[in-house]
């Protein structure tokens, strides 16, 4: 069973609707017990880094997630803030420790210093280097983004890139940990395809 982690902030139902549409059974939960039992995890999220970490700690979700992802090696897909929370440290809403699944920090997007408007909102190309999870998705397909902070890895991992003023990391993969800065559930056909690839173990 797939567990979709619900921190009760933002639009989590969109992911659930997208999964339903492509016929994938799943549960929505913020209960550590459901994370202990999960065979796969999807971690969507919008909102602020600090607020999300606070909610996770209050519910004991951070330790349940660490146990599942680092010890049991359960595949996890983080979307937008969900991916950002994999980092060691986040700068949104004050410096906050993240889940530290990937040595990385999350900082205000460098495009701001280059005269680009933030948030980075809209459709932008992803150079995904034909990684397996993008099976049947053409290189440089457009996905939907809405974010002001970017994920900056500080260790060697597989990445995909997008350009907004600068090339930034819009996709990460480290073993069983996968993250997309873009919203799969809002990227129409290509987004649903990546979501179903994850559910069908193509990664």
């Amino acid at each position: 069973m797939i567990t979709v982690i619900d921190l009760k902030i933002g639009n989590i139902n969109s992911v659930s609707r997208a999964l339903k549409y492509i016929g994938i059974e799943h549960i929505l939960s913020s209960n550590p017990v459901d994370i202990d039992k999960a065979e796969k995890l999807i971690f969507p999220g919008v909102g602020s880094f600090a607020e999300a970490m606070k909610r996770m700690r209050n519910q004991g979700l951070d330790s349940a997630l660490k146990q599942a992802v680092l010890s049991r090696k359960v595949p996890i897909l983080g979307i937008c803030l969900g991916m950002q929370l994999f980092a060691s440290i986040g700068e949104e809403g004050g410096k906050t420790e993240g889940l530290d699944f990937i040595k990385a920090r999350v900082a205000y997007h460098r495009a701001s210093g280059l005269g680009f408007r933030l948030p980075h909102i809209g459709w932008n190309e992803v150079e995904h280097n034909d990684l397996e999870i993008f099976d049947s998705v053409p290189e440089k397909s457009c996905f939907y983004f809405v974010h002001s902070y970017e994920f900056i890895p500080e260790e060697q991992i597989e990445t995909g890139h997008t350009n907004y003023g600068v090339d930034f990391v819009s996709f990460v993969k480290k073993n069983n940990i996968i993250g997309t800065q873009f919203h799969l559930e809002k990227s129409q056909g290509v987004g649903l395809k990546v979501l179903s690839n994850f559910c069908e173990d193509k990664f």
């Binding site: 902030i9 933002g10 919008v46 909102g47 602020s48 607020e51 948030p119 002001s148």
Partner: peptide
């Protein structure tokens, strides 16, 4: 904005 984020 503080609850839901600028992007929302």
């Amino acid at each position: 904005v503080s609850v839901f984020g600028s992007q929302c």
